[in-house]
Nucleic acid binder design. Structure first.
Length: 275
DNA sequence: CACCACCCCTGGACGC
DNA sequence: TGCGTCCAGGGGTGGT
């Protein structure tokens, strides 16, 4: 899925795409992707002056009058703005009609083949935060090492599993967890409580670094991911370990190892990431 | 409470 | 070409 960098790119591209836009109408093709009300008003019909907010992998469209629509993209979800075309692509679960101040029109589509993602409607941002974001850890892009240390020091779980836990920190998925641990030189199955303060500082630093670089490169497109303007990412070309099990380490040429850690395929270099 | 196994769903890659 | 199997970026739930 879209992890933090891909969600951030989606938000940035939506911000651009929605300048001067007004939502004219909405059509819900698959009501089960919307949690709660599918009333047109709750799905932002009539909204203008839309701004974007993100926490971890979730993001919200806030209308000028305060109404809020939360999106979570799951593994294959996407929200895009494009010209109306003759036939709608498959899995377009919710489609909005937009009109711009200059008279142009367009559609916004929520797509999600696997339907692990979804949309939630809220009366305002405060209610959204209370219901959905207060349970998440700090956003991975700005987390401080002390905050990470607090949630790790008592845990016997593997550091890889901790990084994937959105209550520990929000925004990291399988790709960036593996990339971060490689850059930090930490073995993914290290018990969290065994990490030194120096190692936690290094993990924090490398995590923010890899997320920033991925954002700059448009995120990682393995297959489906596109931002709201249809642009694919390029960061997959810079992956050091993710998807490279059995291949040589970019740093030392040792064969990269693969195992299931925290129910996810995990790849690491047995030499650079000492157990 | 902390942790883990399982399940939701579609589609692409690969082997026969 | 066609079919079966395996695997995939996430995370909620329910059990131990």
């Amino acid at each position: 899925m879209p992890e933090l960098p891909e969600v951030q790119r989606t938000c940035l591209s939506l911000t651009t795409a929605l300048v001067g836009a007004r939502i004219i109408s909405v059509r819900v093709h698959r009501p089960e992707v919307v949690a709660g009300s599918t009333r047109k008003r709750d799905l932002l019909v009539g909204a203008e002056g839309i701004s974007l907010h993100r926490h971890g992998k979730q993001f919200a469209l806030e209308a000028g009058d305060g109404r809020v629509l939360l999106a979570h993209l799951g593994m294959t979800g996407g929200l895009c703005v494009e010209a109306r075309s003759a036939d709608l692509p498959a899995h377009s679960h919710v489609v909005w009609n937009l009109r711009f101040e200059d008279g142009r029109s367009a559609i916004m589509r929520f797509t999600d083949p696997r339907r692990f993602g979804g949309l939630w409607t809220f009366p305002d941002l405060r209610t959204l935060r209370l219901a959905r974001w207060d349970d998440l850890g700090p956003d991975a892009l700005t987390i401080r090492p002390e905050a990470l240390s607090r949630s790790l020091r008592a845990s016997r779980r593997a550091i890889k599993a901790c990084l994937l836990d959105q209550r520990t920190l929000a925004g990291v998925g399988n790709i960036y967890a593996d990339e971060c641990l490689f850059l930090a030189g930490v073995h993914p199955s290290t018990e969290a409580r065994d990490l030194s303060d120096a190692e936690i500082r290094e993990i924090t630093k490398r995590l923010k670094q890899v997320l920033r670089k991925a954002i700059q490169s448009g995120g990682s497109t393995l297959r489906d991911y596109r931002d709201a303007s249809g642009q694919a990412g390029e960061y997959q070309r810079q992956h050091k370990v993710y998807g490279r099990g059995g291949e040589p380490c970019v740093a030392c040429e040792t064969t990269l190892e693969t195992a299931q850690i925290g129910q996810r395929t995990t790849v690491w270099c047995p030499r650079c990431q000492d157990a």
